[in-house]
Simulated scan of single mutants.
Amino acid sequence: MAHPYVLLSAAVSLDGFLDDTGPERLLLSGPGDFDRVDEVRAGCDAILVGAGTLRTDNPRLLVNSAERRANRVAAGLPEYPLKVTVSASGNLDPDARFWHTGGAKTVYTTDRGAERLRGRLPGEVAVVALGPEVEWRAVLAHLGDVEGVRRLMVEGGGQVHTQLLRQGLADELQLAVAPLFVGEAEAPRMFGPGAYPPGRMRLLETRPVGDVVLMRYVPVAPGTGRLASAADRRWLAEACELAALCPPSRTAFSVGAVIVAADGTELARAYSREGGDPVVHAEEAALAKLDPADPRLAAATVYSSLEPCARRASRPAPCARLILEAGVRRVVTAWREPDTFVTAADGSGVLASEGVEVVVLPEYEERAKAPNAHLSPPPGRS
């Protein structure tokens, strides 16, 4: 399943509030930042807000610039991005501006919520029932696989942002920090309490926009278990990019690998045949850069564009065995090894049989294959 790129966007006060407790919406951004948000909206396939934000703010969620809308149409896109909301209860006001402005709209809800909404919303609104509960992974999978959404902007509220970030499903966080304090204990905050991904996020950009400061961050801490996180996808994409650096070979795959600690610290990266060694594998080269006694390895994740080899002729120890000996317990890969050089290769099976969590993200398979296209036989030849 292809999850969209999930961008969380919000304006906050210096003390971390989204609003105050007054009856009117507190405007934290200025004209320059409103225009920046409009530009970001225009570059997305869909914009999502939670039902709570729909009730309290009554937003329209439009691309306001006529020029940007025209550019979307010229590019073969709808004039407006898809508007999305999520409500488990189905308690939504049919008179809200959300439904009566802009282009297509979709509601994700439960079976019970869908019954409640039946016949209450404008006929063109798509109501998608996801079963007894609304799971964010199911929402993102439907948006990616069915709606074709590749870039999703999430504009609130705080509960939605908190859930997506805590579940490791946010690819990027864009915060516009306004030069004022709210100071009200009951006012809504950007994030609530809970268990967030560990470690520090990676800063992509910081710049002034009028009198607010835009900060862009991406999470980098790997996921856990068999569920892939947004950070897992980012690191695997980097491993696939590393594979393109491999010296060409007709007798070996081009593979990239990155080893990342549980807190998101990059421990090592490497690619096949790195440093002039004609037979070194990517995972092997990356592990060789680390002290075998490094305590971070036990909770680390290895990202490899091709599954670690289970058998090889060039060295005694295949990469799957090296990973096991290093104590790594989680591997994320894009592509299962074909029979090009070794038949019935099953590095993933070897690792899994020893208790290692192996996550395969097939949406990255084509990227992993690209540096190896010369190894594929021409059509009609075996």
Rank of each mutant, 00 (worst) to 15 (best):
M1I: 13
A2D: 12
P4A: 10
Y5Q: 14
V6T: 11
A11Q: 06
D15K: 07
F17S: 06
L18H: 10
L26S: 05
S29A: 15
S29P: 01
G30C: 03
F34I: 02
R36W: 13
R41K: 11
C44G: 06
C44D: 10
I47N: 01
I47C: 06
V49A: 08
T53M: 10
R60D: 09
L61W: 07
V63S: 04
S65F: 12
S65G: 12
E67P: 08
R68V: 04
A70L: 07
R72H: 04
R72N: 09
A75G: 02
G76S: 00
P81L: 11
S87D: 07
P94I: 04
P94W: 07
F98Q: 07
G102K: 11
G103R: 04
T110E: 04
T110H: 07
R112Y: 06
E115G: 13
E115C: 11
G119V: 07
P122E: 06
G123A: 15
G123V: 14
A129N: 09
E133P: 00
V134I: 03
V134Y: 09
V139A: 06
H142G: 04
G144Y: 04
R150E: 15
V154M: 01
G156I: 03
G157V: 00
G158V: 08
L164G: 11
Q167K: 13
A170K: 01
E172I: 03
F181P: 06
E186V: 04
F191H: 07
G192H: 12
Y196C: 08
G199W: 02
M201R: 13
M201C: 13
M201H: 04
R202A: 13
R207V: 14
G210C: 03
V213I: 15
M215R: 13
V220E: 02
T224V: 14
A228F: 00
A228K: 00
A228T: 00
A231N: 06
A237R: 14
E241S: 05
A244S: 11
C246I: 00
P247V: 07
P248K: 09
P248G: 01
R250S: 14
V255Q: 05
G256H: 05
A257Y: 00
A261N: 06
A261I: 02
A262H: 09
T265S: 12
T265D: 10
R269T: 07
R269L: 02
A270E: 00
E274W: 08
E274R: 10
G275M: 05
D277W: 11
V279A: 14
E283C: 15
A286V: 10
K289F: 00
L290K: 01
L290I: 11
P292W: 04
P295G: 09
R296F: 09
A299T: 15
A300C: 08
A300I: 01
T301N: 05
V302K: 07
A317I: 13
R321F: 02
R321I: 03
L322Q: 13
I323D: 03
L324H: 10
L324R: 02
R330A: 01
V331I: 10
V332T: 09
A334E: 03
S348T: 11
G349T: 09
V350G: 06
V350C: 05
S353I: 04
E354W: 14
G355T: 03
V358S: 10
Y364N: 07
K369Q: 14
A370W: 12
A373I: 13
P377C: 04
P378Y: 05
R381L: 13
